[in-house]
Nucleic acid binder design. Structure first.
Lengths: 142, 142
DNA sequence: AATTAATATGAGAATCATTGTCAAGAAAAA
DNA sequence: TTTTTCTTGACAATGATTCTCATATTAATT
């Protein structure tokens, strides 16, 4: 976590930006949470500690975190964005229950390998991918 | 194509709705196009033929087409929606060039099978999925 | 055909997430 | 300290999409 802040700071410095108290608070709040958090939710949590903070600053900072490679943006078709920690962990995909909204992360190297081979066949060089599998979780199937 | 209109009409009738000239024009325009068309683009094309048509009607009709199972909504993170023909064809995924925006469709049964097995392992019953592979196409890599 | 009930339409307002603007504040550089 | 640069918060603006509503159209009923 401390390391994350350091990485963020390095990124900022390298771009002539500063690690302000607002940015640090937002970043810490983000890292404290388990993934898939919405900007709105970050904003709410941050406001409990620093009520004066603006949502523009929250949006701006989340964008910086994404640019620094520490956060990655996900859109699950809910009409708003979510961010999840990135950079250290493996790339992973999502299993989403369409009834209760539960999100499970998974990784599968064989799927990734197949994606690359399909891409190669079409002359593409893969830089990223997004796989969302929708369905009903055990509970919601009753 | 005529068949599509008939299916659409059936869907509408079964829901106490009517196939108006506007709806038919929008549906025909949609089917004439190759997939991944934005609502905006449909609206533009439709207006050439019927300048009086409103964008609200276009949005409403695209939604009906999706509900009828003839169109399926895709969001590629561009900030707006696209629709593609659905219902008859196999499910397919997308290979997207992050530089020129080119979109290639592909299908891969092995990937789908792996998805199902991962889902099963987590107690999920898969109803749908979305796979987008991002990268650079041959041209854009130069 | 006339009347009544239901559904559609277009125009524009409203919404919602996100981004831009700008004056005022804080930090770093000179 | 003065100047330059970067930040911030408040709020306006944006852009896609949806809602509202008065009017029009179609279907159902008399």
């Amino acid at each position: 976590m401390q390391e994350m802040i350091t990485i963020f700071q390095d990124y900022l410095q390298q771009n002539g930006l500063r690690l302000t108290s607002q940015r640090e608070l937002i970043a810490r709040t983000f890292f404290q949470n388990r993934g898939h958090i919405s900007t709105e939710e970050i904003y709410r949590q941050v406001r409990k500690i620093a009520p004066g903070i603006g949502f523009a600053t929250t949006y701006r900072t989340m964008k910086l975190l994404a640019e620094s490679g520490l956060a990655s943006l996900r859109r699950f078709g809910e009409g708003f964005s979510r961010y999840e920690p990135a950079g250290t962990a493996e790339h992973h995909d999502h299993l989403i229950c369409t009834k209760c909204g539960k999100i499970i992360e998974f990784e599968n190297d064989r799927i990734e390998a197949l994606q690359k081979s399909v891409a190669r066949r079409h002359g593409f060089h893969v830089t990223d991918h997004k796989l969302e599998v929708y369905g009903l979780c055990r509970k919601c199937r009753q």
